Amino acid sequence: MAYSAPKIDNLTRARVAAMIDHTLLDPAATPDDVTAAIAEARELGAYAVCLSPSMLPVRAPGLVVATVAGFPSGKHHSLVKGSEARLAVAQGAAEVDMVIDIGAALAGDYNAVLSDIITVREAMGTDPVLKVIIESAALPDEAVVEVCLAAERAGADFVKTSTGFHRAGGASVHAVRLMAGAVGGRLGIKASGGIRTAEAARDLIAAGATRLGLSGSRAVLQGFSE
């Protein structure tokens, strides 16, 4: 499947909303918070709502349900990540965002990264969408590219910049450009982590992002015209 972002001069509020995974991954989130996040995502016209796996199953008519695995550290055993992803899919998740072992990537052990992703892909099956969180701000450029290529070889559907929880930072235009160059439209690019303004969202889309992970979706969308 080919992935391409909309043209920068066609970024209406509705078109950007349709790229958003409206995200609630706060460890202190309550069931009422989840209900409110789903309602807000529906109101805004978001594509998906992304929730912690412990909050599944949920009813979210009109939205894709996404969740995370190995979040946020990526230091879970691959079999644990795979089991978490498989259970989430069984509980209604259509998309899973998994975190790689960042230390393996920093050490240049891309075969370990590849194996980690393959384990999750095989555990969750081929139909659900798999997004691979590479924590791009924590990696040198070479590792960003190599991890994206490993994700493609492992059968992922997207590569994603960040968890939003790492001290190194979140999404950047530079990282998105590197990622887009590596996967060449063959995988989607999800920019996530620290995106708080319409200007930031616009710049990331222009760099190649095809999906946005946002917790403050309303504030970002207010910067786009109807």
Rank of each mutant, 00 (worst) to 15 (best):
R211L: 09
D21N: 11
L178R: 14
L87E: 10
S78I: 03
L11D: 02
S192F: 09
M1E: 13
A14Y: 03
D141G: 12
A107T: 06
A36R: 15
A191S: 11
G223V: 12
K190W: 06
S115K: 13
T163R: 04
S225K: 09
H77P: 02
A209T: 11
A28I: 05
I133A: 04
A137E: 05
D203A: 15
A206G: 13
T210F: 11
G92R: 08
V80F: 07
S73V: 05
T161F: 05
S52A: 12
A14K: 12
L187N: 11
V120S: 00
H174T: 07
E40L: 15
Y110D: 15
M179V: 12
D26L: 11
S115F: 03
A107C: 11
L214N: 11
Y47K: 15
G45V: 05
L44K: 10
A182T: 10
L139S: 00
A5E: 12
S217L: 08
T35G: 03
E40G: 03
D141W: 10
A138S: 15
K190N: 12
L214V: 09
T163C: 06
L130P: 04
L25C: 11
I117L: 07
L63S: 03
A209L: 14
L139E: 05
A5S: 14
L114W: 09
S115C: 05
P140N: 13
E122P: 05
A88V: 06
H22V: 14
E199S: 08
I8M: 04
A14W: 00
G216Y: 04
P27A: 09
